[in-house]
Amino acid sequence: MSAASTAKIPVEERLFSLVLALLATENGLTKNEVLSTVQGYRQRFKPGGDNANLERQFERDKDDIRDLGVPLETIESPGQAGNNQTLRYRIPRGAYELPGDITFSAEETTLLNLAAMVWREGSLSGESRRAVMKLKGLGLVSDEPVLGYAPRLRVRDAAFEPLRAALEKHSIVRFAYLKPGEAEARVRQVAPLALVQHQGRWHLNAEEPDTGITKTFLLRRIVSPISLIGKTFPAPTGDQTARALAELEEVWDSHTAEVEVVAESDAAARLHKRRGTVTLPSGALRLHYSDANIFADELAGYGPEVLVLSPPELRSAVRSRLLRTVEQHRAEQRVAATEVSNG
């Protein structure tokens, strides 16, 4: 076959042919068998020649297929452990096919379509788009079109994608973290266990390999790129996200503040609607929060509409933030800044 015609075999045709071939084989195919017989490879295969490029292509294709949730399995030949040439590849049907007892009602399909709409950016939008595609393959039509909703979950933190990848591969990560309330960032080296969004913010739950202590980090406060140190850790057992969320909830539950709000103000309307808010007999509000420094930022935004009564550290944190804002917006400073930019 000429080079021109081989170049025309599209990537999806090669990947599709690979899935079909590996699904159909009971005993598995060796790499050599794949490269020499499967559509999209065989046209480029050189019998007895150097197929290094094609082998690398096969490695990447395996990753791309596994990414889609196709369970591509490697079997070692008896007595030939570690020999790459005799490894056999296959896709076990039972692990590939959706179990027969899993069906989704029209109502459930509506909910799942809505859940998929939530992710509109980043790689998770691709994941949910493909999940919906698979749902549609089951032939169901939802009972009503999802109208009237446009939900959005965003992942603005640059650390999210690299952490998610590290989480799946159980890789130890290293990053610089600016702990709320501290002025200097410190380098942390941890085993990532779960990524959870709590109160609108993404958190990493991770274990310090040296101490075995689990800690929670705010993604927004990670101030360096995520780097891998080339070490992995054993996959944790149990539902790490549920544990991480429960830990955050416990912290949120145990921290309360009392604040006075100006009646009928924006602060009164919104803080009243915050989850868990209690109006005290005095008219003051009791609020829950996770982190004093972060909550202080939020309360400072309300300016004179909020007065923090307790705890003292939150009170002084809000006050010092307001004073800092005043300081940074003095009339004379602007002149200085303008001079700098002109000079």
Binding site: D67, G69, E97, L124
Partner: peptide, 11 residues
């Protein structure tokens, strides 16, 4: 029909 990937299910 194929299964979902772990990431698709999580999303």
């Amino acid at each position: 029909a194929p299964r979902f990937s772990g990431r698709e299910a999580a999303a």
